[in-house]
Amino acid sequence: MLTRRHILLGAAALTMPIAPRRLWAGTSLDMGGLRIDTLSDGNLVLPGNFAFGDMSPEEIAALVARHGLSADQLTPPCNLTLLRDGTHTVLFDVGAGPDFMPSAGKLADALDALGLSPDEITHVVFTHAHPDHLWGLLDEFDDPIFPDAAYLIGADELAYWTDPATVETIREDRKTFAVGAARRLEAIADRITTLADGDEVLPGLIARLTPGHTPGHMSFDISGPDGTVVVIGDAIGNHHIAFDQPDRPSGSDQDPELGAATRVALMDRLAERGDLIVGFHLPGGGLGRVERDGAAYRFVEV
C-alpha cells in the first residue's frame, strides 16, 4: 500500500503563524512486511547550465516547456530512502549535512518526523560518496551521527575516494568533493564493509554496480513478496534530460560516456520489468516507475 504524507515540522509552526514553516513531503510504501519511506534532505540549488550544458537555446526552451523547468535555476530534491523489515532499519545515504548547501542537510528533521533517532539505524548503505550523499555522516565533533550502524559501500567507490591520488586527478571544481569524502570515510574506516556487484547486504537486499556517475556507484534491489523497489541513487540523475535523452552524456557524471551507457541499460531493464524506483533527485519523493515513451522514457510518479 502506498501512502503520501505531508508532515508539518516544528512546534513553533503551530503556535506562531507568522514563523517560517516547513512542509515535509514523504512517501511510504508497505510491501509484504517491508516498509520503505523516502525522507527529504532538502534540495540542491544549481544554475541551469549545470544540467543543460551545451544544449542549444531551442533544445533548452523545449525541455523547459515540456517539464515546467526554469532555464536559469534548478532545485532538484534530495530523497533519502529508509527500509524497515521489523528487525533492521537501513538508511541509504546520509544526506549533505551542514557543510554543502544551506538548502540541503535536513535529514535530522525528516527522521524526527518519523519518530526515529539516529541510534535506531542499524545499517547505512551508500550509493556513492558525493557530498549530498555522504557529508551528513559526521556530527560537529567529527563523530558518526549513526553510532550503532554498520556501514557499507561499493569496493570500487571506497578505493577511489580514499586514494590520495584522487584529489589530483579529479576535476578542479570537485577537489573539495575528494577532500571531504576522504575525511569522512577515514572516520569510519574500521567499521565499513565493501560490496561487489551482486552482493547480498541483507536477505532480499542486493547491491548492483551502476558506474559512471562515480567509479563505483551502486544501486540496490529491495525485493519482497509484493515486488521489487530499486534504489537508484544518481544513476538516473533527473526527471527531464535523463529520461528524454538517456544516451546524452551528462556533465554531472564523472565518466559521462560510461554514465550514459549505464543509464540506458538501467532504464531498459526498469521499463521492461516495471519495478518501482526511488531516485535521489526525482520529484514526488523520488518514488515512481520508468516507462517507455517512443524512443525515450518518462518518469511516472506513483
Rank of each mutant, 00 (worst) to 15 (best):
M1V: 08
R4F: 12
H6Q: 14
I7D: 12
L9Y: 01
G10T: 09
L14V: 01
T15M: 09
A19I: 03
L23E: 14
A25N: 07
G26S: 15
T27Y: 04
D30Y: 09
M31T: 05
G32P: 06
G33A: 12
G33R: 07
G33M: 13
L34G: 03
I36V: 14
I36L: 15
L39Y: 04
S40I: 06
N43H: 15
G48M: 01
G48L: 03
F50V: 00
A51Q: 11
D54G: 06
M55N: 05
P57L: 11
P57C: 10
L63Q: 08
L63A: 14
A65G: 03
R66E: 13
H67L: 13
G68E: 13
L69V: 10
S70P: 02
A71R: 15
D72K: 13
L74W: 06
T75A: 15
T75S: 14
P76K: 12
L80Y: 00
R84N: 13
R84E: 00
G86K: 07
G86E: 00
V90L: 07
V94L: 01
V94N: 07
A96Q: 05
G97C: 11
G97M: 14
P98E: 02
M101G: 05
P102D: 04
A108H: 02
D109P: 02
A110E: 05
G115S: 12
S117L: 12
E120T: 06
I121K: 13
T122Y: 06
T122E: 02
V124K: 08
V125F: 08
T127S: 15
T127C: 14
A129R: 03
H130N: 11
P131G: 12
P131I: 08
P131H: 06
L134M: 03
G136K: 13
A149S: 09
A149R: 01
A149C: 08
Y151G: 01
L152S: 08
G154S: 10
A155I: 00
L158M: 13
L158A: 07
L158I: 04
A159M: 04
A159L: 02
T162Y: 10
P164A: 04
E168R: 14
T169S: 13
I170D: 08
R171V: 00
K175L: 05
F177S: 06
F177I: 05
R183F: 02
R184P: 08
L185K: 02
I188G: 00
A189T: 01
R191L: 07
T193G: 10
L195V: 00
L195T: 00
G198H: 10
G198D: 11
E200G: 10
V201D: 10
L202T: 01
P203V: 11
A207H: 09
A207D: 09
R208G: 03
T214S: 15
G216C: 11
D221S: 14
S223A: 11
P225F: 12
V230P: 07
V231I: 15
V231Q: 08
I232S: 01
D234G: 05
N238M: 08
I241L: 15
A242H: 11
F243P: 04
D244I: 00
D244S: 10
D244K: 07
P246Y: 07
R248K: 14
R263M: 00
V264A: 12
D268T: 15
R269Q: 06
L270M: 11
E272Y: 08
D275R: 07
L276G: 04
H281Y: 03
G286I: 13
R292D: 05
D293A: 12
G294N: 03
Y297I: 00
R298L: 13
F299L: 10
V300S: 14
